[in-house]
Design a protein around this nucleic acid. Structure first.
Length: 203
DNA sequence: AATCAGATTTCCT
DNA sequence: GGAAATCTGATTA
């Protein structure tokens, strides 16, 4: 139930993406603790991955991806949203895992407040932009150290207001969402049957 | 149910 | 200039 150490992140990006499923993402704020279990991730590799921001070279935006593992790479997309990534691989090698969806466990009232939306729990954090908004994560936190005590990831505590801890689960691997180049590469991972995966629900 | 406009930054084919 | 690791609320394109 400890906080994941830097060695966890300092590994192959696809392995980290897979192993982050079922872990607990924690944001400590003045108002209280917000915690969600990670249920969907995508691996973004470095210079050779055409779907990655780090494709071909370092830029001011993607520089965090090239730095030490265990940091947060947070970027702004489509004029409105922030996406949270975890930096992987050794210092100097680009790689990151996009956290695409979570399952709310603690601080659900805070999440609803941050999202300024009513509706089912399953729509609170079922997408990368929704997740950061619910957790109160913005671009000013880009580069924050995930081995610190403000924003970090733990093994599933089994605590939570929502439901029992995730036990064993099957992992499904598919192509990544929302990109054109590199879409065919099977670098998206999610927990089979989970109700909090990104995407539209039928009404 | 499916589609569209709008929010508006960062980086280029 | 135009697309991009998105989402919401309004419209039916």
């Amino acid at each position: 139930m400890g906080k994941l150490p830097r060695e966890f992140y300092s590994r192959n990006t696809k392995i980290v993406a897979r192993e982050l499923l079922g872990k607990s993402l924690v944001h400590k704020r003045e108002e209280g603790i917000i915690l969600a279990n990670i249920v969907e991730t995508e691996a973004y590799l470095g210079l050779k991955d055409p779907g990655s921001h780090a494709y071909r070279r370092i830029t001011p935006r993607n520089r965090i991806m090239f730095g030490p593992p265990g940091k947060a790479y947070i970027y702004f997309v489509y004029g409105n949203h922030y996406c949270l990534n975890v930096v992987t691989e050794k210092d100097g090698v680009a790689g990151a895992v996009l956290i695409r969806a979570g399952e709310p466990q603690k601080g659900i009232q805070l999440m609803r407040k941050n999202r300024r939306i009513d509706g089912p729990l399953t729509r609170l954090t079922n997408g990368p932009g929704k997740l950061t908004q619910a957790l109160g994560i913005t671009g000013s936190m880009n580069g924050i150290d995930l081995t610190g005590d403000r924003l970090f990831i733990m093994s599933d505590t089994g605590l939570g207001e929502n439901r029992r801890p995730l036990k064993k689960f099957n992992i499904i691997r598919t192509g990544r969402i929302g990109i054109k180049k590199g879409r065919n590469l099977p670098y998206r991972y999610y927990i089979e049957g989970n109700k909090f995966i990104s995407g539209k629900h039928p009404v």
